[in-house]
Amino acid sequence: MDTLLIEGTPKTPTVRFDASKGLVELKGRSIPENSIEFYKPLVDWLESYAKDSKPQTQVNIQLEYFNTSSSKCILDVFKKLEAIQKSNPNSVTINWFYDQDDEDMLEAGQDYESIIRVPFKMMEVAG
């Protein structure tokens, strides 16, 4: 299936979803006024990917900022990954990157970790 590549903007993250590598990446800022429109293709892509996912899917989430509207859409992304993990145990890992000075971003990752049944790795990045 096609790789989903979206260039980042000041309000939306860079997206790299690569089925051939089993790689799902979001980087940058996610603060659009209405995030549903932006995230729909991402959720759709994951739904297709789930039908023929790689034995290992690596997820890298490295967000500098995200708003509460995005937070629900990011949860939708994670729910799709949770479904992959459920049908193929131990196949998904979510690496949650946060700046060492950004406790709020670490806490946001921990919030998701407590909701989604996929292992999270908290990855501190030097500021």
């Binding site: 209405n34 995030s35 509460t68 509207s69 937070s71 629900k72 949860l75 806490e107 919030d111 909701i115």
Partner: peptide
């Protein structure tokens, strides 16, 4: 506050405008 945030994040749908009732809690 954390528990309330997580509850709404998990169970409340986004409005058509994209708001989710989480802004003030955040």
């Amino acid at each position: 506050l954390k528990e309330m945030y997580k509850f709404i994040l998990t169970y409340q749908k986004l409005s058509p405008k994209g708001g989710g009732g989480l802004g003030l809690i955040d």
